[in-house]
Amino acid sequence: MNLYGVRAIYLFEMARTWRTLLQSLASPILSTSLYFVVFGAAIGSRMGEINGISYGAFIIPGLLMLSLLNESISNASFGIYFPKFSGTIYEILSAPVSSIEIVIGFVGAAATKSILLGLLILLTANLFVDYEIVHPLWMIFFLVLTAVTFSLFGFIIGLWADDFQKLQIIPMMVVMPLTFLGGAFYSIDMLPEPWQTVTLFNPVVYLISGFRWSFYGVADVNIIASIGMIFAFMFLCLTTIWWIFKTGYRLKN
């Protein structure tokens, strides 16, 4: 194991975070704060409780997930896409680092950044709404696992993308709608049939539901299903990455 190599990639990526602090931390925190102000404080005060939770508090896990998914994907995808784009990838490919080490370095840094961001958003939310966390360890578990899984997913997008548009298209066209429709702002019980059933095919429903359960102890879907879903998606991402490095797809000629 080339630990120095993993460390070099990790620190390189983290340095990028500190260099672009405004873009990487401040801007997602600001936008999440706006959601809290608009949906939590302004509109939320006119809405009834959902499952005994005030609306402002109810949307916290969903909003956190929304930022977490977006930032994990964009961090990890940009992290590996940019060296490909600028040509500096030659150095990583010619270095004595294995594909696993490359993934740990890049994905580890992206996930670290997302976790940090998630915790900061949680602190920020405290300024606008009161909330409690019933299962803090499970909350951390979901936070970390989601950050890692979606950083892996972002890493795949970054490897696959061969222009900037492709880099943006999956987060914008797939992840964003799935999150909005995944119960970030409502409980899926509130949907009429057949949408209640249709929505069960949206994997993000399981993430948000599980995450909300760790906060308030209530869930839309079975908690085991939520955990299973994350691991299934993580497994899928790992398999895809393994295939990419094995075949050299879009990395080596």
Partner: peptide, 8 residues
């Protein structure tokens, strides 16, 4: 320093 670390 990045290059040196990368090469272990």
């Amino acid at each position: 320093n990045f290059s040196r670390g990368l090469f272990g």
